[in-house]
């Protein structure tokens, strides 16, 4: 009796499947390499350089590569600079909250109540219109609005609501907050609109059919489903606000010092080592903020 044998000699040459897998892997590397190269040359390398420079020795007009912790000690020992960290964090938190408060209802309206896709796109584009002009103009345009003889003060005086111009409006932390909120709001609106627009309308109808009122549906369905959008928006806004210097420079009248402003002024006076310390601190803060955001919402799961 002949037994059916299933084992044949193992083929020695590579099978077509293995060849294909190898080809796929090569293609993946090929696609990945430009990005990797770019990141290595223009991000990882400079980052290492900044950390390295922060330990260099700073003399009044020059910097040399003798390693020292002097710049770090001066930064961490100075109330001014620690205060700047506090200001940066405070401005970041307030602007983040403000963009969320202003932006979320807009996104809710565009994403949920405008069901016509063309109109949705048109409204989103309308949000970006301020970006058709330069950053500086957008910021400086707040001066005639908020100044002591600006539009708001004039109107309030004409209405008789105030008798003296409000001075806290311009060249204060308030004007910085207003300016930043206006500029960065759209970065919150975009991702949130996208997430809300992706909610299947029948899911909301199902919740209504099960007897839930609009408030409940918002809290239990729409808000949780839009959270990944909020998180992406928050990361956009955070990264930009934490590194900000221009809005503060032109709207605060030098009263508000953010970490970004310190870096600019130190670089301006050729204090490279000290600027590098501020840069490292800023990078650490941004990393911590993003890590925190990603802990709250698992984007890989939600998107």
């Amino acid at each position: 009796m002949t037994a059916l044998s299933t084992d044949s000699p193992m083929p020695t040459e590579t099978s077509p499947a293995q060849l294909r897998e190898r080809k796929d892997r090569r293609r993946a590397w090929l696609l990945l390499s430009p990005g990797l190269l770019w990141m290595a040359l223009f991000m990882v390398l400079p980052m290492c350089m900044v950390v390295y420079v922060s330990f260099w020795t700073q003399t009044t007009f020059s910097v040399n590569s003798t390693l020292t912790t002097a710049s770090w000690e001066r930064f961490l020992g100075s109330a001014t600079y620690l205060h700047a960290i506090g200001t940066t964090l405070r401005v970041w938190a307030i602007v983040l909250a403000a963009t969320l408060i202003v932006g979320y209802p807009v996104a809710l309206y565009i994403g949920l109540f405008v069901r016509n896709k063309t109109l949705q796109t048109a409204l989103l584009v309308a949000c970006v219109i301020p970006f058709w002009t330069s950053f500086l103009i957008r910021v400086i345009a707040w001066r005639p609005m908020l100044g002591t003889e600006g539009a708001i003060n004039t109107i309030l005086m004409k209405l008789g609501l105030i008798h003296e111009p409000l001075t806290f409006l311009l060249f204060s932390e308030f004007s910085v907050l207003v300016g930043m909120t206006q500029i960065y709001c759209v970065f919150m609106v975009g991702p949130v609109t996208f997430m809300i627009g992706r909610i299947d309308p029948s899911v909301i109808e199902a919740a209504r059919d099960l007897g839930a009122s609009f408030g409940t549906i918002f809290r239990r369905i729409i808000l949780p489903l839009s959270l990944p959008g909020v998180m992406v928006g928050a990361i956009f806004v955070s990264v930009m606000v934490l590194g900000e210097f221009a809005t503060a420079a032109s709207l605060s009248g030098r009263k508000v010092n953010l970490l970004g402003n310190i870096i600019v002024s130190q670089v301006g006076s050729l204090k490279w080592a000290f600027a590098a310390v501020a840069g490292v601190v800023l990078t650490l803060i941004i990393t911590a903020v993003i890590a925190l955001a990603l802990r709250i919402v698992d984007l890989r799961k939600e998107m």
């Binding site: 299947d200 899911v203 199902a206 919740a207 059919d209 369905i221 489903l225």
Partner: peptide, 13 residues
Amino acid sequence: IGFVFQNFALFPH
């Protein structure tokens, strides 16, 4: 009234 949707419309989260 109960409504069973064609695409089920379950709450994904």
